[in-house]
Lab assay of single mutants.
Amino acid sequence: KSAVKALFDYKAQREDELTFTKSAIIQNVEKQDGGWWRGDYGGKKQLWFPSNYVEEMI
């Protein structure tokens, strides 16, 4: 599983989504079709976030 870095702040709209700030590192990313991926951040595990808010880390 990979890690991504947030390009923008994102505030969860639902309880199954992540809230994060710009430059946050989201771990254990599971990529899905449809523009939403799952990952771990801030003590939350495998919640959804919009993939267009992040960049992949190499």
Rank of each mutant, 00 (worst) to 15 (best):
Lys1Arg: 14
Lys1Pro: 13
Lys1Asn: 12
Lys1Tyr: 12
Lys1Phe: 12
Lys1Val: 13
Lys1Gln: 13
Ser2His: 14
Ser2Met: 15
Ser2Val: 15
Ser2Ala: 13
Ala3Leu: 13
Ala3Ser: 15
Ala3Cys: 15
Val4Tyr: 14
Val4Cys: 15
Val4Lys: 03
Val4Met: 11
Val4Ile: 04
Val4Thr: 04
Val4Leu: 06
Val4Gly: 05
Lys5Leu: 12
Lys5Gly: 00
Lys5Cys: 15
Lys5Trp: 06
Ala6His: 01
Ala6Trp: 00
Ala6Gln: 01
Ala6Phe: 01
Ala6Glu: 03
Ala6Asp: 04
Leu7His: 05
Leu7Asp: 04
Leu7Tyr: 04
Leu7Met: 11
Leu7Glu: 04
Leu7Gln: 07
Leu7Val: 11
Phe8Val: 10
Phe8Asn: 09
Phe8Asp: 07
Phe8Met: 13
Phe8Gln: 12
Phe8Tyr: 14
Phe8Cys: 15
Phe8Lys: 14
Asp9Trp: 06
Asp9Glu: 09
Asp9Met: 05
Asp9Pro: 10
Asp9Asn: 09
Asp9Tyr: 06
Asp9Ile: 02
Asp9Leu: 03
Asp9Phe: 04
Tyr10Ile: 01
Tyr10His: 04
Tyr10Gly: 01
Tyr10Val: 00
Tyr10Ser: 01
Tyr10Pro: 00
Lys11Pro: 05
Lys11Trp: 13
Lys11Asp: 13
Lys11Ser: 13
Lys11Asn: 14
Lys11Val: 15
Lys11Thr: 15
Lys11Gln: 14
Ala12Gln: 07
Ala12Gly: 11
Ala12Val: 02
Ala12Lys: 05
Ala12Leu: 00
Ala12Ile: 03
Ala12Trp: 04
Ala12Tyr: 02
Gln13Val: 11
Gln13Pro: 03
Gln13Gly: 08
Gln13Trp: 06
Arg14Lys: 14
Arg14Trp: 08
Arg14Cys: 15
Arg14Leu: 07
Arg14Asp: 08
Arg14Phe: 09
Arg14Ala: 12
Arg14Pro: 03
Glu15Ser: 12
Glu15Val: 11
Glu15Phe: 10
Glu15Trp: 12
Asp16Asn: 12
Asp16Thr: 10
Asp16Gly: 11
Asp16Ala: 06
Glu17Lys: 00
Glu17Cys: 08
Glu17Phe: 05
Glu17Ile: 01
Glu17Trp: 00
Leu18Cys: 05
Leu18Glu: 02
Leu18Thr: 02
Leu18Phe: 04
Leu18Gln: 01
Thr19Tyr: 03
Thr19Asn: 08
Thr19Leu: 03
Thr19Arg: 01
Thr19His: 04
Thr19Ser: 14
Phe20Asn: 02
Phe20Ala: 00
Phe20Cys: 04
Phe20Val: 00
Thr21His: 12
Thr21Gly: 10
Thr21Arg: 12
Thr21Ser: 13
Thr21Tyr: 12
Thr21Gln: 12
Lys22Glu: 08
Lys22Asn: 06
Lys22Phe: 07
Lys22Arg: 12
Lys22Tyr: 07
Lys22Gln: 11
Lys22Val: 11
Ser23Cys: 15
Ser23Tyr: 14
Ser23Gly: 15
Ser23Asn: 15
Ser23Arg: 08
Ser23Phe: 15
Ser23His: 15
Ser23Thr: 10
Ser23Leu: 11
Ser23Glu: 13
Ser23Pro: 00
Ala24Leu: 04
Ala24Ser: 13
Ala24Gly: 08
Ala24Met: 06
Ala24Trp: 03
Ile25Tyr: 07
Ile25Pro: 00
Ile25Val: 12
Ile25Ala: 04
Ile25Lys: 04
Ile25Asn: 02
Ile26Gln: 03
Ile26Glu: 01
Ile26His: 01
Ile26Pro: 00
Ile26Asn: 02
Ile26Asp: 01
Gln27Pro: 03
Gln27His: 14
Gln27Gly: 08
Gln27Thr: 15
Gln27Cys: 15
Asn28Val: 04
Asn28His: 07
Asn28Gln: 07
Asn28Arg: 06
Asn28Asp: 05
Asn28Lys: 05
Asn28Met: 06
Asn28Glu: 06
Asn28Phe: 06
Val29Phe: 02
Val29Cys: 06
Val29Thr: 02
Val29Lys: 02
Val29Tyr: 03
Val29His: 01
Val29Ala: 03
Glu30Cys: 15
Glu30Tyr: 13
Glu30Gln: 14
Glu30Asn: 12
Glu30Arg: 13
Glu30Trp: 13
Glu30Phe: 13
Glu30Pro: 00
Glu30Ala: 13
Lys31Asn: 02
Lys31Gly: 03
Lys31Glu: 05
Lys31Ile: 09
Lys31Phe: 09
Lys31Asp: 04
Lys31Trp: 05
Lys31Thr: 07
Lys31Tyr: 07
Gln32Tyr: 15
Gln32Asn: 12
Gln32Lys: 13
Gln32Ile: 15
Asp33Cys: 15
Asp33Asn: 11
Asp33Ser: 13
Asp33Ala: 14
Asp33Pro: 15
Asp33Tyr: 10
Asp33Trp: 09
Asp33Thr: 12
Asp33Gln: 12
Gly34Tyr: 07
Gly34Met: 06
Gly34Val: 06
Gly34Leu: 06
Gly34Phe: 06
Gly35Ser: 09
Gly35Gln: 09
Gly35Lys: 09
Trp36Phe: 08
Trp36Lys: 05
Trp36Leu: 04
Trp36Gln: 05
Trp37Met: 06
Trp37Glu: 00
Trp37Cys: 04
Trp37Gln: 02
Trp37Leu: 04
Trp37Arg: 01
Trp37Ala: 04
Arg38Ser: 04
Arg38Gln: 08
Arg38Met: 09
Arg38Trp: 01
Arg38Gly: 01
Arg38His: 01
Arg38Ala: 04
Arg38Pro: 00
Arg38Leu: 09
Arg38Tyr: 03
Arg38Asn: 03
Gly39Asn: 00
Gly39Leu: 01
Gly39Ile: 03
Gly39Arg: 00
Gly39Pro: 00
Gly39Lys: 00
Gly39Phe: 02
Gly39Ser: 01
Asp40Ser: 03
Asp40Leu: 00
Asp40Tyr: 01
Asp40Met: 01
Asp40Phe: 01
Asp40His: 03
Tyr41Ile: 06
Tyr41Trp: 08
Tyr41His: 09
Tyr41Ala: 05
Gly42Trp: 06
Gly42Phe: 06
Gly42Arg: 09
Gly42Ala: 11
Gly42Leu: 09
Gly42Asp: 12
Gly43Thr: 09
Gly43Ser: 09
Gly43Cys: 10
Gly43Lys: 07
Gly43Arg: 07
Gly43Gln: 08
Lys44Gly: 12
Lys44Met: 14
Lys44Leu: 12
Lys44Val: 08
Lys44Trp: 09
Lys44Arg: 11
Lys44Phe: 13
Lys45Asn: 09
Lys45Trp: 10
Lys45Gly: 05
Lys45Met: 13
Lys45Asp: 06
Lys45Pro: 03
Lys45Thr: 14
Gln46Tyr: 09
Gln46Cys: 09
Gln46Ala: 10
Gln46Ser: 10
Gln46Gly: 14
Leu47Met: 12
Leu47Gln: 09
Leu47Trp: 05
Leu47Glu: 04
Leu47Thr: 04
Leu47Val: 05
Leu47Lys: 11
Leu47Asn: 08
Leu47Gly: 15
Leu47Ile: 02
Trp48Leu: 13
Trp48Gln: 06
Trp48Thr: 04
Trp48Arg: 11
Trp48Pro: 01
Trp48His: 05
Phe49Asn: 00
Phe49Ser: 01
Phe49Pro: 03
Pro50Met: 06
Ser51Gln: 09
Ser51Lys: 11
Ser51Trp: 07
Ser51Pro: 05
Ser51Arg: 10
Asn52Thr: 12
Asn52Asp: 13
Asn52Phe: 10
Asn52Lys: 10
Asn52His: 13
Asn52Gly: 11
Asn52Glu: 13
Tyr53Glu: 01
Tyr53Ser: 07
Tyr53Val: 11
Tyr53Met: 12
Tyr53Gln: 06
Tyr53Lys: 07
Tyr53Phe: 12
Val54Tyr: 01
Val54Glu: 01
Val54Lys: 02
Val54Asp: 00
Val54Ala: 06
Val54Phe: 01
Val54Cys: 05
Val54Asn: 04
Val54Thr: 07
Val54Trp: 02
Val54Ser: 03
Val54Gly: 03
Glu55Asp: 08
Glu55Cys: 13
Glu55Phe: 08
Glu55Thr: 13
Glu55Ser: 10
Glu55Asn: 07
Glu55Arg: 08
Glu55Gln: 10
Glu55Leu: 09
Glu56Trp: 08
Glu56Cys: 13
Glu56Gln: 09
Glu56Thr: 09
Glu56Tyr: 07
Glu56His: 07
Glu56Lys: 06
Met57Asp: 09
Met57Tyr: 14
Met57Gln: 09
Met57Lys: 06
Met57Asn: 08
Ile58Ser: 13
Ile58His: 13
Ile58Gly: 13
Ile58Glu: 14
Ile58Val: 14
